[in-house]
Design a protein around this nucleic acid. Structure first.
Lengths: 245, 245
DNA sequence: ATTTGTTGTTCAAATATAGAACAAGTTCAA
DNA sequence: TTGAACTTGTTCTATATTTGAACAACAAAT
């Protein structure tokens, strides 16, 4: 099969070990498709996966059976609606508790409001609400992921952990002094970090039994009363937490 | 392990044949988790899957590696943020083209606006926009799925197909006469079908090379000018289609 | 017409997986 | 405390699943 040493070096190379190969490849296929900007042919996907075409073909068929993947008229594959169904279950309690708060914040402040959750080294946007008259270019789409140590939501999440806890749970990313300030204030602020020209404010949400999250707003940089908005976010976060308990 | 006849009868029992067993089981695990109202223990999930615990354990580890699943402090499993990332790629072009139209419709009409796509025998809601002052109870959440022959979006999708095509592609569900009317008008209407007390209007979106979709609004039943709203939906659908081409 | 690119199917060899058996940690109740 | 009944997590070998080559068929370029 493969010598132990060769297997080990391969393990070192790959980001994650793959306990079950077929499942891991299937998920990889979905990740590749989600990242791709256009539908892919089976051959392209097989190449991206690094597997034989017949293997990719079998995997795709299985994914297609579950609607996680659909094929267009030309036979090319792209992510399917089954993924939306699965995603519906992600932190459902948090989503439902946060939605009213998000709509209220978005319309009261005329800013895009969203909830992001901590995921390993990243921060993933879960649900967003656009203000009434939005250019829609600010849109922080659900499913967006970026490093957890940048942006106000990331700092807010960081502020829920001590420096030691952070070092242990998020190895590799430095502890930011802004997190200390955020813990004191109850909210975090950032400018031009994730997207140039945009500022964000966020308050942490402590999820009982789960990973911390954050409720945030994003807006075009301008001088204004950060404290008032930050406190509104913290109040929303508190209301959400009370619903989760 | 299993006699051929027993294997065959099992296959007959299961809804879909499973070309690759491990992958299929992994997806089934995600489906079970998404449908579950609460976090599940590994033993519960193994029972639901009908597999040995050690098998479930290995599958879960793989899913966890990809953030498709997270575990709470008690070790119970629930859907993870990676699913949101994957779902981001579902009909991305349609989502981005539809979002501005949805926000405009929602606020102009003060109704919840959403886009749904056709998936086999079902209709899956992809993206929704709530009006400004919404009770949020009307919320047609993304990821909701219901049979494709009920509700205005379903009828609108049905109206894009001839009766023969419908019979061939959606076996088992009857062809509704309302679809003919919808094709003539350019939009479909329904009352008390999916949810009692709620009405919906929808216009079909023809996706080039892909499966048809629909843009729709949902509102509490009342007398009003259906035609005006329906034509607004049809106009939105036309603008979305022009962007997709 | 030929080349190059697809998709889809079959098959034997070889691998990854299944499930039992085990160790060890909980949370109960007695 | 002790025990019972739950858990989770690990290791192991027979075996069933998967692998990847080879093939057939088709479409679109050259």
């Amino acid at each position: 099969m493969m010598s132990p040493s060769a297997a080990k070096s391969l393990q070192d190379t790959k980001a994650t070990v793959s306990p079950s190969q077929t499942l891991s490849r299937g998920i990889q296929a979905l990740e590749i498709l989600a990242a791709a900007e256009r539908p892919l042919t089976i051959a392209e996907l097989a190449a991206a996966l690094g597997v034989h075409r017949s293997v990719a073909y079998r995997i795709l068929r299985t994914l297609e059976d579950h609607s996680l993947l659909v094929r267009d008229d030309a036979g090319r594959v792209q992510p399917g609606p089954g993924l939306a169904v699965l995603a519906r279950g992600v932190s459902r309690d948090l989503q439902t508790a946060a939605l009213p708060e998000l709509t209220q914040l978005a319309n009261a402040l005329n800013m895009t409001a969203f909830v992001a959750v901590w995921d390993h080294q990243d921060c993933v946007t879960l649900v967003t609400v656009e203000p009434r008259h939005s250019a829609a270019t600010l849109a922080q789409h659900p499913g967006t992921r970026h490093p957890v140590n940048i942006g106000a939501p990331g700092i807010a999440i960081q502020s829920t952990m001590s420096e030691e806890e952070w070092a242990a749970r998020v190895p590799g990313l430095p502890y930011r002094p802004e997190a200390v300030e955020a813990r004191r204030l109850g909210y975090a602020a950032s400018h031009d970090e994730v997207i140039a020209g945009l500022s964000s404010l966020a308050a942490p949400i402590h999820v009982p039994g789960g990973r911390p999250a954050a409720i945030a707003v994003v807006y075009i940089r301008r001088e204004q009363d950060q404290a008032a908005v930050g406190e509104a976010l913290a109040a929303s976060a508190a209301r959400i937490e009370s619903q989760l308990a």
